[in-house]
Design a protein around this nucleic acid. Structure first.
Lengths: 164, 164
DNA sequence: TTTAAATACAAAAAAATAATCTGTCAAAGA
DNA sequence: TCTTTGACAGATTATTTTTTTGTATTTAAA
């Protein structure tokens, strides 16, 4: 059981989260200014938010196209037999594929939804082939090839003035 | 036409991108140490990578569940008539919905794939209802409710020793 | 109620880092 | 060869981070 006493987040905490979510490299001085604290308590709050797992990390977003990943694709995978073992194996195998940015177990007839960035069609074929050949129990797959990325954000709506 | 001279990325640049992608708040001192430069040229490279758009921003990842977003859902939307106007309107409307983290125009019969984080079933119904009622030309939708997030990463595979 | 302990904060000081400046070296082109 | 350019390291200054100290407020115990 988790007996860790989790403090409730106040407006200042939410404001910190909201700000860092949109500018992960802001200085504590500026952050403190925004949330209306001096730097010391502001930094203490950030450290606590990190320790408590509310802040899970800081990341630079790199342009995928400039990195040679011109193709974004979502793949839906159905497993034919649904033993827990097959699921575990599938999970592990997928987690180790670097092209696979996301993998989710979704409702319905035990499907996975996968998001992958690859260079082009040939890499797409390799990815599909590898996965379909390597992973056991795959019944069929359906792909959604992205033609236009309308929106891609990581920012959750956080409203400091009305905590949920 | 874009006549901007884009320098080719060398191993050091790729190493910088790879490092910042995984630790967006690292200091220039430590970053310079990792990539084998002194701080000045290292910082100059980072600034250039930012200016050239290869680094698109820095973000803290906030725990969605702690923020009250316990539910992750993918929604597939089909538009019935495919006038450019309907597409534009749909794009704009979707982009302004804060719950919608991603929206992609995917191949097939002109579908959109949407990723949204919401609190619970009632918010899910509100989201679907709002979208289906508000947005014109929506034919039908299909939802994938995420039961388990196997993997969710933002990090592209970057290999400094073999540039693509 | 009073005291003690804990918490949150600000301000000051010390340590570390960011940003700027200067000069050197090497490569490319005239 | 000479000049220009670009990338770099080292030194310097400005700023930020981190630590320390002290105060006010709250909470719990005496």
């Amino acid at each position: 059981m988790n007996t860790k006493q989790k403090r409730k987040l106040d407006k200042i905490d939410l404001n910190i989260l909201k700000t860092l979510q949109e500018n992960g490299r802001i200085s504590y001085v500026d952050l403190a200014d925004i949330v209306g604290l001096s730097t010391t308590p502001c930094m203490e709050r950030v450290k606590r938010l990190e320790k408590d797992g509310l802040i899970q990390g800081y990341y630079a977003r790199i342009d995928p196209h400039a990195m040679g990943y011109g193709m974004l694709v979502f793949v839906e995978i159905s497993l034919s037999y649904q033993s827990p073992d097959a699921f575990l194996k599938f999970n592990k195998a997928v987690a180790s594929l670097p092209y696979v940015l996301e993998c989710h177990l979704v409702s319905g007839d035990a499907d996975f939804l996968i998001k992958a960035r690859i260079a082009d069609m040939s890499e797409y074929r390799a990815l599909l082939g590898e996965m379909l050949l390597t992973l056991p129990g795959v019944k069929n797959s359906k792909s959604y090839i992205v033609m236009e990325e309308v929106k891609e954000s990581l920012s959750l709506p956080i409203n400091p003035s009305s905590p949920r």
